[in-house]
Amino acid sequence: MPEELYDIETTIPSNPIEEFLRMDRMPHIWCPGCGIGTTVNCFVRALQTSGLDLDKVAVVSGIGCTGRVAGYMNLDSFHTTHGRAIPFATGLKLANPELKVVVYSGDGDLTAIGGNHFIHAARRNMDLTVILINNMIYGMTGGQAAPTTPVGATASTTPHGNFEETFNLPFLAESCGAVYVARWTAHHVRHLTKSIKEALAKKGFSFVEILAPCPTLYSRRNKLGDGLDQMEFYRDNSEIKNGADTKTVTLDFQGKITVGKFVDKERPTYIEAMNQHYQKKYGERYVPSDEMRKHFHA
């Protein structure tokens, strides 16, 4: 056979998102049908059109399947400890406000073990974009129940069915003070991409929840088919309600899914509030860090 037929470079064009990924780390660990990769694709598309200098974007993850996102992004990326991506990101952002700091992690990581940090970062309106992948389960450790596992669903630690109420995450985020709150599913790639782009452009604590299938541990155990079946379920059962009252967007086991942009408001961010407060109080005596000064003069 002529050698040129084997020339992969001429037959398979490179994927335009490759430059955003650490291709030397492929293949990734995610299962076939997992929704996380789809969300990464949307994140990359959002970055592409965001106008952000990619050298100034940092991704911080906790632990878990979604926690691995940081490791695959060809950006400054930090894979921290379980639940602690937000406080790490807080330190990073305050050290250098010029950075766009994105926290990318899972439901268990951010709202169970990391729940305290989540609510306080939202309260402070810390300048972070938080992308939370909600697959309703702990995937990495083998399908244990999370604060997002719906009542009636089964997990490895709720073998008789779950009876604990879940968090309604958009409501939690809004009530704690997030200035941007949206929810989409892995099926809504265009809406999601746009939403992530908006979240990245937003000052303060922006939050995007993304429902994504975990075919291996959630869908299979609950007899919901494979990843494609979950995507079809999202398509058929999602209702776009921009501006919906977040109190009403609770998720039930295989019930209707309200998606959309729920909150988009303004209030001073932590960094703005801190600098304005000190400037007002101390005028010239206040010495902001060089990075802080540069950020405000930019």
Partner: peptide, 14 residues
């Protein structure tokens, strides 16, 4: 817990 990792974010921020 948050304090002990926020400092590490700041260190990687320079």
């Amino acid at each position: 817990i948050a304090s002990s990792i926020a400092i590490q974010g700041a260190v990687w921020g320079g």
